[in-house]
Simulated assay, not measured.
Amino acid sequence: MRKERPKNLDLSTVKFPITAIASILHRVSGIIVFIALAIFLILLNCSLSSAEDFQRVQGYLDMFIVEFIFWGALTGLAYHAVFGIRHMIQDLGHWEELDSASLSAKVGFGITVVLSILAGILVW
């Protein structure tokens, strides 16, 4: 016999816990870091090919959109590093309870905000 279960496909009505948000954003930040690495390697390759290309890449670095991409990449890297350390600590058996996991996620978000501000100061 087939039971009809209610279906809720509207994710905007679902309230995710902070630990789920942290885990999802950790995966997203990994993708951002991977894409940023490709961009940085392309710029490095271009800058090493000739003196004219080096000057051209240096000119790119003065553009706001490129600075914003650098800031976003550094923020993604900071987030991925902070929450990667958090995940490794959880793998060791710590911060597995809901209260301590929520607290460690909040602390991780705070550390990431501080590192993001520092990255903004570094870039601009």
Rank of each mutant, 00 (worst) to 15 (best):
D53T: 13
S29C: 07
C46K: 11
A20G: 03
L25G: 01
I31P: 07
S102Q: 13
L118I: 14
Q90P: 00
V114Y: 06
M1D: 14
I89E: 03
S104Y: 06
H87T: 07
I85Q: 06
W124R: 08
E96R: 14
V28D: 10
L44H: 11
L44G: 07
I39A: 12
D53Y: 11
I21L: 15
L41I: 11
T75M: 06
I121M: 10
A81E: 05
V114H: 01
W95Y: 11
V114G: 02
R2W: 15
F64R: 11
H26Y: 03
R27L: 14
R56M: 14
E4G: 06
V107P: 07
F40H: 12
I85P: 06
S49P: 02
G93Q: 00
G84V: 00
G108A: 05
V82Q: 04
I89N: 03
W124P: 03
S104L: 09
A81M: 11
L11V: 14
D62N: 09
F68P: 02
M88F: 08
L122N: 11
P17A: 03
L41M: 09
L61W: 08
G59F: 01
L77Q: 04
A101E: 04
I39S: 10
S49K: 09
G84A: 00
A119D: 02
M1T: 09
R86V: 14
Q55P: 02
R2I: 15
I111N: 02
I121C: 08
L44Q: 12
E4Q: 10
L122T: 14
L44F: 09
Y79C: 04
W71V: 04
F70P: 05
H94N: 13
I35K: 02
L103M: 14
L92Q: 04
K106I: 12
L77N: 01
V14L: 12
V14D: 09
E67S: 09
R5K: 13
M1W: 14
V28T: 09
I69G: 03
L122P: 09
E97S: 12
L115N: 04
V57C: 08
K106C: 11
R56V: 11
F40Q: 10
I85C: 10
S12V: 08
I32T: 05
I42N: 09
T13C: 06
L122G: 13
A20T: 07
I117R: 00
L48E: 12
G76I: 00
A78Q: 01
V107W: 10
F109P: 01
D62A: 06
I24E: 06
H87M: 09
Y79Q: 05
V114R: 02
A78Y: 01
T19A: 10
V33Y: 07
E52K: 02
L43V: 03
A81K: 06
Q55T: 11
